[in-house]
């Protein structure tokens, strides 16, 4: 990557980590016990629920968009773009 791209990526990563660490710092000591996880186990709180839907969206995005949006590596797409 070019230096300015690397710098941009590093800057964004740092900013995100700072925001998240601030959030985690303020709540990180909260320990949710197994008996308190009934809401966390619901499908809308479970990222794995969207796996198959994300597969299709990733395939469309690979043929149309520059950005991968975090779905994973490229390749395997159709050459119909």
């Amino acid at each position: 990557m070019q230096d300015d791209d690397t710098t941009t990526m590093a800057r964004w990563t740092t900013a995100v980590l700072l925001v998240m660490s601030t959030g985690l710092g303020s709540t990180g000591c909260v320990l949710v016990m197994p008996q308190e996880r009934q809401y966390l186990s619901m499908p809308e709180m479970t990222p794995a629920t969207d796996t198959l839907e994300d597969m299709f969206h990733a395939h469309i995005e690979a043929a149309r968009r520059a950005a991968t949006n975090g779905h994973g590596g490229g390749g395997g797409g159709c050459g119909c773009g």
Binding site: M20, T27, G28, L40, P47, T68
Partner: peptide, 14 residues
């Protein structure tokens, strides 16, 4: 990270 019994925070880097 489970921040609360109703809040999840996620971070993915690829």
């Amino acid at each position: 990270h489970t921040l609360h019994r109703t809040v999840l925070a996620l971070l993915n880097v690829s």
